[in-house]
Write a protein that binds this DNA or RNA. Sequence first.
DNA 1: ATAAAGTCTATTGATTCACTTGACTATTTA
DNA 2: TAAATAGTCAAGTGAATCAATAGACTTTAT
Lengths: 150, 150
Amino acid sequence: MRLSKRGEYGLRAMIILAHAYKESPDTMVQIREISEQDKIPGKYLEQILLALKNAGMLQSRMGIGGGYYLARQPQDISLGQIVRVLDGPLAPIRCVSQMAYEACGCPDERTCGLRMVMGDVRNAIADILDNTSLENVIERMDIARAQLEN
Amino acid sequence: MRLSKRGEYGLRAMIILAHAYKESPDTMVQIREISEQDKIPGKYLEQILLALKNAGMLQSRMGIGGGYYLARQPQDISLGQIVRVLDGPLAPIRCVSQMAYEACGCPDERTCGLRMVMGDVRNAIADILDNTSLENVIERMDIARAQLEN
DNA sequence: ATAAAGTCTATTGATTCACTTGACTATTTA
DNA sequence: TAAATAGTCAAGTGAATCAATAGACTTTAT
């Protein structure tokens, strides 16, 4: 049940970009900055951000003063979308996936116990990830930081 | 977020074994039978059942009339236990794992947004898998089968 | 003794993961 | 306008993991 490094790096990068967006929506952030801040190999991060851009979640500008920025507002980008782009379906097994259904070998899907439980798991994961936006993440971080100051 | 074939095969096998247990607790089921019923490569299944036996969930007898059977009652074996034995921790990232915690590189775990969300995901998965026993699975299958007969 | 079962260890081939390399393109500014 | 900066794109690589396979060995019942 694991999130890949690719997925993890992508999520961390998007959180940084969301943070920059909150300060000013047109802030450009360079790969290099994110890479240093989160200790992510730069060239690897490059591919990840590109994938996110091709999926329509990021925009970028080349050249001096260029960089990446969110294509939509942080409240309109869910962690579920990010993970699906970088790591594929959320479902533990494909016969229970919404985005990439595939039959498993069981005699009857309607009475397959494993499928029922894994369906529940998929829904639990999707409920969290699809209903958590980058905005929500930033909020939670701010609250945690504020509480630490006491 | 995927369950490996190993995990899937193991769960399917345990469900069959639980079913046999319900008919009579001392029923022996051979690897071969499970392998044919669920279309699992026999030699692979062998390793999986052995791992489950070494984890104390199964018992076995060699020789003619031998086979595998549950070491505990179906209501005392959770899917969570099975998955952990075969696939390792349920947590999407290790800094949020109960059974295999490991620090990630983030500056402060207490204010890491990703960690908070992934903690929620871990708990959601564990809540389902740790609170679903083999007995529960059998019940759901029976109910589904009964409903199909109308 | 023999056949039927599980046990144990090792190996394999394919795939995936986590990068790395390097050449190319667009944009700014001196 | 050329030099510097930043993203784009395609390919390759080494290690690890996955999903099996192979084969010798042990235990048990008849």
